[in-house]
Every structure is written in structure tokens, then in C-alpha cells.
Write a protein that binds this DNA or RNA. Sequence first.
DNA 1: ACTAAGGGTTATAGTAACTATAAGGTCAAT
DNA 2: ATTGACCTTATAGTTACTATAACCCTTAGT
Lengths: 145, 145
Amino acid sequence: MMSEKSYTVGRLAADTGIKAVTIRYYEKIGLLPKASRSESGYRLYSEADYSRLLFIRRSRGLGFSLDDIRELLSLADRQQDSCAGVDAKVEQQLEQVRSRLKDLRAMEQELERLSACCDGGAIMDCRIVETLSGEAAHNRRAKCS
Amino acid sequence: MMSEKSYTVGRLAADTGIKAVTIRYYEKIGLLPKASRSESGYRLYSEADYSRLLFIRRSRGLGFSLDDIRELLSLADRQQDSCAGVDAKVEQQLEQVRSRLKDLRAMEQELERLSACCDGGAIMDCRIVETLSGEAAHNRRAKCS
DNA sequence: ACTAAGGGTTATAGTAACTATAAGGTCAAT
DNA sequence: ATTGACCTTATAGTTACTATAACCCTTAGT
């Protein structure tokens, strides 16, 4: 007797913080099911779609790829199965994040070192340029920390 | 009287650790100058090309984009100019890296928290799935640290 | 001289996760 | 009726490569 409330794509976008274009894109790649349509052809979304989108958004926030999320969603859909698969994916993602952290920390250190190297002279005397050019650490005591 | 030694693309690749395809790609997008050619059409590279490639590789290692590197190279080429531009770019990159670090650290924390949540039951009881589904922190004392 | 392996050459398409653009249809309000 | 804000589609661009195909060159071995 009462129809469920439905969202247009723009409404869903506003409510979830995911842009309308992106929502359509998710539909196109099959991450979201095809939305039902109004008479005039507008997409109409249900509460279930809304939840699914939130799931996607949270997962993206944790750095999962869309392919990972596709898997997560299908794992999460099998309510009575073990959650070992989900747990494994979280673990895997954690490792990946840590590995990227390691790389970035190394970059940060090196950039800090370089940054401390510059004393504002000309390019030809610039330690930064020297370092980037590959004349690795030889005598950088003089001007660098 | 003596011609400089020159590298083929594969040799340069082996020496710099940048793949031959990538070297050709760098030439195509103008990051490397057009290489001279042997009679049969093979690319021939000089020491200068070698240095330039090393510069690119080190900069990539610091997370600079190819566009940034293009700028860095052109800055570095003006030997008598001030190195302020280079310094600024390093500073900028440092900021970017730090911002990405911040994001990743947040992801790491949240993933750690999630990972600790799983007690190996069924999906329908899984705290991870619950959390991802957006039912934010309500009563997670029970099973989560 | 012939051949096969291991170089090199080009052009084109695919990757991830969108973003931008164009060209148009719909809806609510004035 | 017209404006403005929404919706629709399709296509191309982004980053930094990687993969593929189809072909040419060089060199070592028989």
C-alpha cells in the first residue's frame, strides 16, 4: 500500500557524498545493480542502494580498490557464510597500506633531507639538483645537516 | 676523433633500471629529447641522456609526477638561475607526501581496529561487515578491543 | 649462406577510478 | 512560456605506464 521512498541520483549523491557521475559509473561497472527507472527515464534508488553505496564509500575510505569492494560486497551478501574471507581481505589491505606507508615515510625523510640542503644559491651550486642528478652522497657535510 | 660511447635503449634500460618501453614513452611525451638514431633506426643514447634518466628516476622515487619532473628538469637546466624554484617544488612535494601519510595512517588505524573485531563467526554477526555497512560505532565493546 | 635468438621499431589498446564535455530531455516555478 | 536546475547518453581525457601485435636488425652457430 505504501511505496518505499526512492532517491534520484542527485539526491543519493547529496546524501552519500558520492557524486552522481560516480554513482552512474558504479552502475555501469556493475558495482551497483541497475537502478529502476521513473516513467521519464530517471534512475530511482532504494534504501538498499543507499546502504550499498555507503558500504562502498567506507571501503574506499580504507583504500580498497573497486575490485576488492566488489568481492567484499559479494562476501558480505552471503549472510550465513563464515566471515573469514572478509577478515582476510582486511588483513591483506592492512599489509598493503603498511607497505605504502613505508615507501612514503622513506620519501618524507629524503625530501626533508633535501629541503634542508638548499641555501638559496644558484642552480649550479644546488645540493638538491646535485642529489637528484645522482651524484649520490659524497661530501654533503659542508652545507647540509 | 673518438666518438662518445652510446647506449641502445636496452642497454640504457639495464644501466638505469628503467624499462626500455618506459624510456621510449618518456621520449614520446617529451621528457627525454628525441634520441639520435643508428643507420638502421635504433635509438642511440649519450651520457647526457643517461644522467637525465637518472634524474628522472630519483625524482620518481621521491614521488614527483612526470609533470613536476619536467619542471624540475627545466629549472635545473638554467645553471645560473636561483634554485628557489627547485626548493619550492621540494617543499611542495614534502607537503603532499605528508598529507598522503596522514590519510594512510588513518586507514591503518581503522583497519587495525576492524581486524581486531573479527572473531571468526558468520557474516551476519561480523563486526567488520557491520562497520563497513555504516552502522557506525554503537556497541562495539562486546567483541572489539 | 641460412637460421634462430634476442635485440630493436611502430602503432594501438588496456589499466584504475574517475572527470570533463557535449548535446539533449524533464521538472517545478514564475 | 520560459527559466534554471535537474536528469539522460556517449565520448574523450587523465596518470604512468603495460601489453599486444606485427614487423625489422644483428649476431652467433651450423
